[in-house]
Design a binder for these strands. Sequence first.
DNA 1: GTACTAGTTTAGAATAGTTCTAATTATCAC
DNA 2: GTGATAATTAGAACTATTCTAAACTAGTAC
Lengths: 143, 143
Amino acid sequence: MSPTPITTPDALAQRLAHSGLRSTPQREVIYDVLLKKRDHPTADEVYARVRTDLPSISLATVYNCLETLVQCDLVRAVNFERGPTRYCPNLRPHAHFHDEQSGSTHDIDLPADLLEKVSAVLPPGYDAKSVEITFRGKAQAKH
Amino acid sequence: MSPTPITTPDALAQRLAHSGLRSTPQREVIYDVLLKKRDHPTADEVYARVRTDLPSISLATVYNCLETLVQCDLVRAVNFERGPTRYCPNLRPHAHFHDEQSGSTHDIDLPADLLEKVSAVLPPGYDAKSVEITFRGKAQAKH
DNA sequence: GTACTAGTTTAGAATAGTTCTAATTATCAC
DNA sequence: GTGATAATTAGAACTATTCTAAACTAGTAC
């Protein structure tokens, strides 16, 4: 279901082009930032990191680019309760674990069949395009 | 895991008292409104419905009371992407299905063992207090 | 019953995160 | 190069929510 992860700028350009979009410095740097430190940053955090490379980028552009990457299936937007949206370049099927103590978010890889098993609980007439699984609790320090 | 649903005002009062809180007209009416129409209303929608009974209630009180009911495990707060928080008095283990066309939310009852099965994917060191499962897609009109 | 105490409600201000708007800039096709 | 389209930008606007400080309410001790 999920497309293969992309790790080179060229591949990013291709994926964008496939949706009729251009590769721009802003989009590239933002995508790089997400790949480099996979700690589910918020738009603000991405903004701060990107500015070391592109000091004149605007926050609106960060939002625009993140949304673009989400639309192209290069990045997942993750929401947890009423907190700010976080962004995640992990495209394998995975759940999210939110550590209440540290506020950090961890990816939990899912066995291939689990999402199917979960979707099987849907009564007839329900057609799910996506499933989100989110845990909340505490994780040991080392994570 | 989930406490038994409460359907009488007395039981609500007891549950509140158990947390050292009082039963007030505002809390009662808000809880009634949630029980009466289980369509996952937002705080604004609750506010509108409650005002037919308590025309002078304030929106802040609606937020306060909803939060109180959530704290007492009488109501679940449900978030979907960046939309406003919705409130749900269904305490049985269930997932949520968001119909993209209508914007409506449906409860999906879960078999007793599913949440355990899902939690079993957590690596050692992760201790989940709660699990959320959310589907997105389209549901047939009759739902 | 009066006074004390803590819990509750209230209106409105403040905040956070995000989206919108309109202008500017960059890129592509010809 | 020129024109068309896409992308970026700054700042205003918006939405949902939380905060603040004052007013109100209810139970308790006398």
